[in-house]
Amino acid sequence: MNYWVEKKEKQIHANVFIIKDRCKECGFCIEFCPQGVLKVSEEFNSKGYHPPKLVETETKKCIGCGFCSMICPDFAIFVEKEEENEKN
């Protein structure tokens, strides 16, 4: 029962899980990430594709919307939210 307490805006942050060997490099997750946190990696997976990776400078920018996991045709990526500053 704390609705009268002034709450600070939540700092939502999420972890990105990548199953590299499932990726077929369609590029959907990279293109359509609303935060632009993904890019093509240089490594090859076992199928010969380049799986996505987080942009180094943007590791904290994922908001966990999960759109990448929704539009991945290969079940190769998903996110899990990690909520910070919740009790501030």
């Binding site: 990105v16 899980f17 990548i18 199953i19 987080l54 590791t59 996991s69 079940f75 190769a76 998903f78």
Partner: peptide
């Protein structure tokens, strides 16, 4: 943070 994973939560619905 980027974490390498082995399975997707949706896998439980897949064969």
């Amino acid at each position: 943070m980027e974490i390498e994973a082995e399975a997707n939560p949706m896998d439980k619905y897949l064969r």
